[in-house]
Design a binder for these strands. Structure first.
Length: 332
DNA sequence: GAACTATGCGGAA
DNA sequence: TCCGCCTAGTTCA
């Protein structure tokens, strides 16, 4: 479900709250019992994200690779230090709602006041994880530690003060260092991993090699990492590019623009936790767009509605078994 | 309470 | 190309 920005945010939360500490691991659901037993008691050494994949390193050359897929989510609970590089940290990270907007689950301090608007120095906050109604009751009532397990928790990671629960991932597997390198080697460049200039060259070369429509290439994690269905549609619109253009026919300068746009959008997404793709509106228009919750994007999820630029109906078609939204007039 | 949907991806056919 | 995975929020009856 999450696109690349969410995964980077989650990795930063792990880096801030788990690395350097021994971690208790368990699989309440049972489906990762063997892996959890291997992890249990090990110190977490680092957390990193590449595209939509997250890698947690534990002592003894043991790595955990997690991919959230369509449904996965991490829930953080307990006392957490908010990473200063992200404007707000959600109790629940990864899962999102149906409007294509991020669920902004909020962190409350011990007094129960919203502490999210503050950006800057890291601070400790008590996370109250919102979930279903019955969960809310449980979490708010008790000072229980560790928090009661609710639902199908594939993996629970615990320090003395912080809890992270993983639900519904597509992938949750242990890897050797070599296997981690192998996984990463198959991935296209991520603007936040390695040299962005080198990433740009890799991206341009990979796209120009292929006759595949650019709409499919942008979603291909071997071509570029982290772009999902929302960013794909929005980036193509921002570039005024026809989604069906074969990769090799996209002018090189347009490809370079696309890469730089991804660099920019990813940075904004990691910082804000939201897929802000209309950042180039003037401030007043932007405020108006944001005021209506459904109006965050240029084309995504806007089938049949008038294009914000030309008024043409936004088209919806299936490509590669995914929904593609675009403006047939602006994106010729 | 059922039906529907989703920001993903791998494997079978 | 299609199917299955697997979860939770939203919509509708």
């Amino acid at each position: 479900m999450p696109e690349g920005h969410s995964v980077h945010r989650i990795a930063r939360q792990f880096a801030r709250n788990f690395t350097g500490k021994p971690v208790a691991a368990s699989s309440p659901q049972g489906r990762f019992a063997e892996g959890a037993a291997v992890l249990d008691g090990r110190e977490m050494l680092q957390a990193k994200a590449v595209g939509k994949q997250m890698f947690l390193e534990f002592d003894g050359d043991v790595w955990l690779r997690v991919h959230l897929g369509l449904y996965g989510a991490w829930d953080f609970a307990g006392e957490i230090l908010v990473d200063p590089t992200i404007a707000s940290a959600n109790g629940r990270m990864g899962q999102t709602n149906q409007r294509g907007t991020d669920l902004d689950e909020q962190i409350f301090d011990d007094a129960g006041e919203n502490s999210l608007s503050s950006i800057g120095a890291p601070r400790r906050s008590r996370v109250h994880v919102r979930m279903s109604e019955q969960t809310r009751g449980l979490v708010d009532e008790g000072e229980q530690w560790p928090p009661p397990v609710v639902g199908q928790v594939r993996l629970r990671l615990l320090t003395d003060i912080t809890c992270a629960d993983l639900r519904g991932p597509t992938a949750c597997v242990l890897q050797t260092p070599d296997e981690v390198l192998g996984t990463i080697a198959k991935l296209g460049p991520d603007p936040l991993v390695g040299d962005p200039a080198e990433g740009e060259e890799r991206f341009v070369a990979a796209v120009r090699r292929k006759a595949t429509p650019i709409a499919l290439l942008l979603m291909d994690q071997a071509v570029v990492s982290g772009i999902g269905n929302v960013y794909r549609a929005e980036m193509l619109f921002r570039a005024r590019l026809n989604p069906h253009t074969p990769g090799r026919d996209v002018p090189e300068e347009v490809l370079r623009e696309l890469w730089h746009d991804w660099v920019r959008l990813l940075a904004i997404g990691v910082e804000t936790g939201q897929m802000m793709t209309m950042d180039d509106l003037d401030p007043e228009a932007y405020r108006a767009a944001m005021a209506s919750r459904d109006d965050r994007h240029w084309v995504y999820h806007r089938a049949g509605l008038p294009c914000r630029v030309c008024g043409t109906e936004i088209a919806l078609e299936e490509i590669g078994a995914r929904k593609l939204y675009w403006c047939p007039s602006c994106q010729r």
